[in-house]
Amino acid sequence: MNHPKENHLDPLRVLAMIHAMIEESIYHTETFAYTLNVHHNDKAAKVFHLICEQFKAEQGIVLNGTLNVDLPTIPPWEEPYTEYIHPSSVLIHANYLMSESEAWKLMHEMVEIHKRFYTFLCKENSVNTLFSVVDQLVNYCNDCGEKNKRLEAKAETNRSKSSEDIDIIALHSNEGGLW
């Protein structure tokens, strides 16, 4: 894969790559949410839907920061930096029976991929012109991270109280009503 580093520091190219990355994440989370719904896993689908909305908001930040600017077309195989991972690559670990917390885990990994890219850019001194957009993206990801952790914890608590689990506990206990 190409890593023409000097090109990345061209603010418009960087923004185009951010835009392309978010676009990929939106497409895949939307598509997977749909197929999870089709496979009757509404709980995991809900998590994918929620993160998809957050990616859309990230895209909104980029679009706002590039109003009236034509972003260059970047070859879809060009990667922004050497350690870059395509956000969709984590989705190979999805499955139709996945639990809500497994869905959260995958979504965290995807969000982390975004964050790693933004952090990489923050470290590069020569991207001052980009700073405000990247800064907003980092802040947004951090805010969502906190919010997502709370939602995940809530899902975890609800899960341990769910009737499904109570039935399983009952099945395995000597005093369980199902024996």
């Binding site: 895949h28 598509t31 197929t35 999870l36 496979h39 969709s88 989705l91 999805a94 499955n95 139709y96």
Partner: peptide, 14 residues
């Protein structure tokens, strides 16, 4: 697509 979540075919389509 309605492939199983995680199926490699999704990424090929894209």
């Amino acid at each position: 697509p309605i492939w199983c979540p995680g199926c490699g075919h999704f990424f090929i389509l894209r």
